[in-house]
């Protein structure tokens, strides 16, 4: 089977042509301009993942929230579960760049880290 998809690894957005066998295993990836594209195609056909970014409430900071991201991409289907945990979290200032604010969110094995200071 041939699947066409757009790689979302970076803003270039390469058009990928993915060839799958009957067991849904990737045989070949064409159209990618870097290694990430191949990995993206395999992930997208087996276990689609996404980076999740949001904000976490801060007590006593200059701004009321600090931006955060998942340290690594998480399964696409867990994004809303993770959002609930993120929205129920409040941290105390000061927050430094890269601080881990939530560990192993929703048992994904991935931490939520600060992407700015407050």
């Amino acid at each position: 089977m041939i699947k066409e998809m757009v790689c979302v690894s970076c803003p270039i957005g390469c058009m990928l042509t993915v060839e799958l066998n009957d067991n849904n295993e990737v045989i070949s990836v064409k159209g990618n301009t870097c290694k990430r594209g191949e990995q993206y195609a395999v992930d997208e056909c087996t276990n689609p993942v996404r980076m999740l970014t949001s904000t976490v409430r801060v007590n006593g900071g200059v701004l009321p929230v600090v931006p955060v991201k998942t340290a690594k991409p998480i399964p696409k289907g867990k994004m809303f579960d993770c959002m609930e945990v993120i929205n129920n979290t409040v941290v105390d200032a000061p927050i430094r760049m890269g601080d881990v604010l939530i560990t192993n969110i929703c048992d994904t094995g991935v931490d939520i880290v600060a992407t700015n200071e407050d």
Binding site: C10, T53, M97, T115, N116
Partner: peptide, 25 residues
């Protein structure tokens, strides 16, 4: 960049995927 908290910045320049505030930082 300070309000562009999504990732996708820096793949060309730094070779890694950063959020807006991280890129500015």
């Amino acid at each position: 960049l300070e309000q562009c908290i999504h990732t996708g910045f820096g793949l060309h320049y730094f070779g890694e995927e950063l959020s807006g505030p991280e890129y500015a930082y």
